[in-house]
Design a protein around this nucleic acid. Structure first.
Lengths: 123, 123
DNA sequence: CAGTATCCCGCGAGATACTG
DNA sequence: CAGTATCTCGCGGGATACTG
């Protein structure tokens, strides 16, 4: 069943379903308004709660707290309480799994950069 | 001010701000619940309204309609009305700009795939 | 087929205040 | 400092029905 002169789709039909489902999963986990910002901040060396809140512009303590719990459940941050400190210190650290997101973040950052230029150039 | 034995962050401080802002933009545009699904479907060769609605599981006509308008504004789909058809046919086509998202989608799909395996393997 | 019009509801998330 | 507790509200988006 070959149709003539048909433009080749960017994705094949099979890959479509595959991409749809896998991308849904990814977006579900990291597509939240704050999720990736937190991940980036943690990967950048911001490990403390208030440090994170300062770094991530506009996030409230309540939201940051619940997001961090989610991220911890997904293995994307590790919550470490250092009891041998005075006073006790809580840190949120990147994990090996966090690092698997680097390519995703890079791709997004590159595209976001391009997009920003495109938008600002035409206003 | 060099602190000894500090773990090198995955991103430098400068890159942090940069990534934060660019990634925010990207997430803002394509981080919606439906956005990327629609883009993928369009890139996969689903060009008609009802075809898209059938392909994208769970989306309502109202939401699909408004999302398509957004995507059109962002140059991520092109709405084409073929008046030389009987009856008149409306198509939503990928653009050159849509194709700039391929790497983003690939990265997300790959990660989503990995993540799904990770999740299902531990339940 | 390609949408629009309404109605409606939950929850994501902001604001503010409080606690060990 | 590192959160929790409420309270509140908008809007994203589902369901359903309608139209050229």
């Amino acid at each position: 069943m070959k149709r003539p002169k048909e433009i080749k789709p960017a994705f094949t039909e099979a890959r479509c379903a595959q991409h749809l489902s896998a991308t849904e999963d990814a977006i579900y986990v990291i597509g939240g308004k704050w999720t990736l910002r937190i991940v980036i901040a943690v990967m950048s060396g911001h490990h403390r709660f208030n440090d994170l809140q300062r770094t991530i512009n506009g996030i409230s303590a309540r939201v940051l707290s619940s997001e961090l719990k989610d991220l911890e459940l997904n293995g994307l941050v590790e919550r470490v309480v250092l009891v041998d400190q005075k006073p006790v210190v809580t840190e949120y650290l990147p994990t090996d799994y966090t690092r698997t997101l680097r390519e995703v973040i890079s791709a997004l950052a590159i595209w976001g950069e391009k997009h920003k230029k495109k938008i600002t150039n035409r206003e």
